[in-house]
Every structure is written in structure tokens, then in C-alpha cells.
Design a protein around this nucleic acid. Sequence first.
DNA 1: ACCTGAACACCGTTCAAGT
DNA 2: ACCTGAACACCGTTCAAGT
Lengths: 217, 217
Amino acid sequence: MAKRTPRGSVTREAVMDAALAVADRDGYEAVTIRALAAEVGVPPMTLYTHFADKAALREGMRERAFEQVVTATAEGSWQEALEEFAGNCRAVLRAHPNWVPLLAAQTGAPSAATLRLFERVFDKMIADGLPPAQTVYAVTAVLSFASGCMLFEGLMVGAGTAPLPTARLDLVRRLHSPDQHPGVAAATAAVDDFSFDAVFELGVRSLVEGIEKLRGS
Amino acid sequence: MAKRTPRGSVTREAVMDAALAVADRDGYEAVTIRALAAEVGVPPMTLYTHFADKAALREGMRERAFEQVVTATAEGSWQEALEEFAGNCRAVLRAHPNWVPLLAAQTGAPSAATLRLFERVFDKMIADGLPPAQTVYAVTAVLSFASGCMLFEGLMVGAGTAPLPTARLDLVRRLHSPDQHPGVAAATAAVDDFSFDAVFELGVRSLVEGIEKLRGS
DNA sequence: ACCTGAACACCGTTCAAGT
DNA sequence: ACCTGAACACCGTTCAAGT
């Protein structure tokens, strides 16, 4: 599967890191084969030694970025592990808003780092009495929520370019006619400190509590 | 803002519907200006009468697709309204898996249809005693989860091309070495009827319950 | 004034020429 | 055998020529 590294040349990891760096600096769309080749310092066609096509490049970028999420400690309850996991997703994507589109990339086999994280969480949940099957549901739900949250936040604040207060103001301003939508106007007017952090925490906490209830079933 | 429709030509809505049809039939990537022009039956450059650039086209597609979600009834509690809303998101995206990448498109002003939905949900939540500010958090959380769920499902089953049991089997097969990850292996082996529907329902229910708790605060 | 054909500056990828 | 330059078939968009 994995092509061997051409002698004396860059590694696959270095290529993926360079691609992530280009996305960080110039935007997700700027990651072209030619631009990446310039970044790495090799002729464009040489890059195909490290991936089959552009979809494979994106998948490699996504997996490489995900490895930064999997820095969880081995301590604590599964509840804490799940919250830390979600929090790491958020931290990484807030630090690198241009990586958000990678969430929509096709997936391949999970990396060893990913499996190590799942292993730890699954073990804790089973030890706590959760039905083994439900652990998969739990992790899927939390990961989905975290992904959707980041996607939605990027959508509303323009991929992290605007500060959060601006996002709220924009939301209010976008209301075409407050007269026709008094409920929306009242709700948005009452939010004077809207924060995606709060939405994120509310969601993760609610999901964890919902999962906890599965213990008795 | 909106360019006026050229006389005797197609409307903006028709262009967006045609774009959604192309995505449905040939895939999201196949929606090029030239392919869309052929679908509509006009010269490529004529399309720029209806949108400024490709990003605006994608935004128009997303908004148009979202209008299919906003078919909620006016009856029932806000809990039911939120669940119906999330369910509609799921139904539309499962019927049109090639539209999933639209979730990552930049957003513009919400359409009148979107506001009408929010209006209804906000009104119900406020009438039920929820703090007005929290209603925004609630809707954001549910919408984020629904989006993330569809994104994640599309990621795992290849944008709806594979049936769900296959998705589970793939998940298990992707485990590099079951020996090294007994917890993961046990958890996935115990899941003999993994269903994204169940994850979706678990998540939506948990989020709604988490929001309900805000009533007293 | 509005519409749109031709042209431009890209893009991902093929393939055969180089080594 | 492996690497990669040139070439191909696209792409979104500009712009000036048409009406």
C-alpha cells in the first residue's frame, strides 16, 4: 500500500505537514499539487510518489491533522476522556480554521493513534458497565457533534476569521425583517454574549449524560 | 443584491435546482460551470447573471437545499419541532448524499424559509419558559449535531453509497491488529446492528434533554 | 446596455522521454 | 527501474467583441 520513500527525499509525513502548512497560511483551496511541490521543494510530479491522487492527499492531511487531536491522557473517567477528546478537536480546529474542510474528506482506515484513543475510551466505558455495543454509538455521537460544531462555527464566523462577538452581530444583522420575525429578533437580542464555546460545552455535556443513561439498560 | 432575471431565461431558483440535480446524478465535484450550463441549456458565461462566482453558486445550492428541510409543521412542542427539524435534515441528506459537501460551504444570510422555521421554534421555546438567549444555543447545538452526524455518516459509508451493515463490517475490517486493540475489537464485535439512525436519535434526544434543563436556570 | 464567445491563467493527471 | 518534463484535457474567470 504505502510507497517506499524515494532515497534522500522527503517523507510522506513531511509532505502532509507541508500541505497542512500551506492550508494554514494560504487557505484550504490553495493546497494545489503545484503549490505543495513548491513548498516541499520538489518537482510537482514527484509528489505522486507519496499519494495516488488528490483525494488521497486530502485523506493523508486529515489523518495527520487528527493525530494532533489524539494527545489524550490515560487518566480519568470515560466521561472526562470523551470531553477531553471533543475539547482537543475543538482546540486543534480553532487553531487551524483552514483545516475545517478536511472534515468533509473521505475517510480511510483509522491510524494507529486514532485506534489507541478509541481503545482507551472503550476500555473505560466497558469497565464502567456500559454495554460494549453502546460504546461505539457514544464515540460516534460525540465525534459527530464535535465535527458538526466546528463546521457550523466555521460557517458562521467565516472559518475563524472574525471574532465571536462579530459573529453574533452578523447573525442579528442578517435578519431581513425583525418585524416579521419577532421571536427570532427577541432571542438574538437577548444573547449579548453568544459563544460557540458554550454551545460546544452544552452539547458535549448533554451527550455524555445521555450516554450515561445507557448503563442501566 | 439579486440580479434581475434576464428576459425569457431561466430563474435563479431553476439554476440552483439544476445544480443540485447535477450533484445528485454525477456527484458534487461534477458541478462545474460548464456542466451546469449544459444542464440548464445556456452558454456558460450566461450563468454569471445568477451568481457572482462559484462560491456564491454553492451558497445558493445550499440555501435551496435547506429549503427542502424547512417543511416543519406548526403543531407540537418545541421538543418535537427540534426533533422534526433534525429528522428532516437527515431525510434530505440521506436522499441526496451528494449534497453533503454543501454543509461545508460558506454561509450567507438565512433565507426567509429558514427564518420562518427558527421563528416557530423560538416562539415555542420561549412560551415554554426557556430563557430567550438559550433558544439560540439550543438550535445551534441541534443543527450542529445534525450536520456533523450526516458528515460523519457520509464519511464512513462513502456518502451513502454502501448499505449500513457494510459500513460496520468495514469498520471492523479496518482495525489493523485486533490483538493490539482488544477493547475496540470487543466493542465493534458486540455491535451486530450498528445504525447511524440510532446514533442520530440518541444524540438528538440527549441534546433536547440537555436543553430542557435550562428551563429552570 | 446587456449578453456571451474567445482567450487567459490556472488546475490534476497521463505518459513517454529521460536517467 | 525509477523519476519527472512536457503535454493534455479540463477548470473558473476576464474582457472585449458582439448585439
